[in-house]
Design a binder for these strands. Structure first.
Lengths: 101, 101
DNA sequence: TTGCTATTTTGCCAAATTGCCAAATAGATG
DNA sequence: CATCTATTTGGCAATTTGGCAAAATAGCAA
């Protein structure tokens, strides 16, 4: 039987890596995109309609999410379908919802 | 018996509010502070030593966390002790740790 | 009151972020 | 090849953020 794992203390580097991912989520449009991908993959053009910004703006948000490792794309003909890689990032919402200022 | 609650669709305003809180967490120093408060409240001067930045910088990070509703302060003489209001925000870390780029 | 300590606020500046438009790219199709 | 569609990239201005230092504030004690 294993002894209970004791986590190493986190370094500044660890926190920087975490912050990169959290920063990618820290934008209203990107939260909307992530939530839109909760149940199914969605095409960029659909996301543009949902978001309502210029397509180039939406694309930039997607590349930020992609670089953070939060979403991935699959090409199908001319369309790119984005999907959520780690749906658990949306569980966060439940905790956040309980915070009142 | 109640029927299962069906969440309302989130508005841009909802996402903006969520983003505010997440943005407050999206900085290495602020993640370090939040984790330092995981088990017990901590004085500002201790946090300054942990973080290593100028005291005014630490104070600014604390005010960002406070405005986001993530921490609160309790005065004891000259010292201010900060504590984590919603420890659940640290559960997030588990999901984040699974993300690889 | 004065002085002392802990903390916050203000001012400043460099760096990063945001969003739009235009241009470039990738893939499909003729 | 040319052309069309979907998407990304580059450039730019406006705004926001981060960190230090100086000044201001809050509470305690003499």
């Amino acid at each position: 039987m294993k002894t209970k794992a004791r986590p190493e203390p986190k370094t500044k580097h660890d926190y920087a890596a975490q912050a990169e991912i959290i920063k990618a989520m820290a934008h209203p449009t990107r939260l909307l995109i992530l939530n839109s991908l909760k149940k199914k993959e969605v095409c960029v053009c659909e996301l543009r309609d949902l978001v309502g910004d210029d397509i180039s703006t939406v694309s930039k948000h997607l590349s930020i999410l992609k670089n953070a490792g939060l979403v991935a794309a699959r090409r199908e003909g001319n369309w790119l379908h984005y999907r959520l890689i780690c749906p658990c990032v949306l569980d966060f919402t439940g905790c956040i919802a309980g915070i009142k200022r």
